[in-house]
C-alpha cells in the first residue's frame, strides 16, 4: 500500500467525520426545507464513504501486490529546509503589521535566501535590500496600496 496515499485517505476520512459532527450541531431541517447543516452533513457523509472506499481499494491492492512489490526509494528532499522556509513565512506574517511592509519584506527575503543557501552575504543583502526598496516604491508609492506601515511609519 502506498503509505502517503493511505495517510491522505485517513486524513480525509477524519475530515469527513469532523464535518458531520459539526453539521449535526446546526439545524438540519428536511429536504423540503433544508436547514443550515443539511448540505455540509450530506457532504461529510459523502466524503466518509468515498475515503472509506478509497482506503478499502488500497488495502485490496496491497494484498494483491504483497511480495511482488519492491521497496519504494525514499526521496532525498530537504524537509528541514522546507520547514524553515515555511517557518520564515509564518514569522513574517505574524510580525507583518508590527514591522511594516518594507522591513518585513527585507527580513523575509534575507531569511529565505539564507535558508536556500545563497552563499554570498553580499549578494543576499543586496538582493534583499534592492527588492524590498523596489517593491516598496512599486506597491506603496506608485500603486498606493495601503500596506502596513509598522513602527517605522513608512
Amino acid at each position: 500500500m502506498n503509505r502517503d496515499e493511505a495517510l491522505g485517505g485517513v486524513v480525509l476520512f477524519f475530515f469527513g467525520v469532523v464535518t458531520v459532527l459539526l453539521s449535526l450541531r446546526m439545524p438540519i431541517g428536511t429536504f423540503r426545507a433544508a436547514g443550515t447543516g443539511l448540505f455540509p452533513l450530506c457532504l461529510g457523509i459523502l466524503l466518509m464513504v468515498l475515503s472509506a472506499a478509497f482506503l478499502w481499494g488500497l488495502r485490496s491492492k496491497a494484498k494483491k501486490d504483497k511480495g511482488s512489490r519492491e521497496a519504494r526509494p525514499e526521496e532525498a528532499g530537504s524537509t528541514g529546509q522546507m520547514i524553515f522556509f515555511l517557518g520564515a513565512m509564518v514569522l513574517a506574517t505574524a510580525f507583518f503589521n508590527t514591522l511594516g511592509y518594507p522591513l518585513t519584506s527585507f527580513l523575509l527575503l534575507l531569511a529565505l535566501l539564507r535558508i536556500l543557501r545563497v552563499r554570498s552575504w553580499k549578494v543576499t543583502l543586496a538582493l534583499s535590500f534592492l527588492t524590498a526598496v523596489a517593491s516598496y516604491f512599486l506597491f506603496v508609492q506608485w500603486l498606493q496600496i495601503p500596506l502596513p506601515k509598522g513602527f517605522l511609519g513608512l
Binding site: L113, L116, I145
Partner: peptide
C-alpha cells in the same frame, strides 16, 4: 531558482494582502 523562489513568495504575500488588506488572508 534559489533567488527566484523567495521573490515569488514576496509577490504572493504582497498580492494576497492587497485583495482585502487583511493579514488573515495571508494566514
Amino acid at each position: 531558482k534559489r533567488m527566484l523562489l523567495p521573490l515569488i513568495i514576496l509577490f504572493c504575500i504582497t498580492g494576497m494582502f492587497t485583495v482585502n488588506n487583511s493579514v488573515f488572508d495571508i494566514w
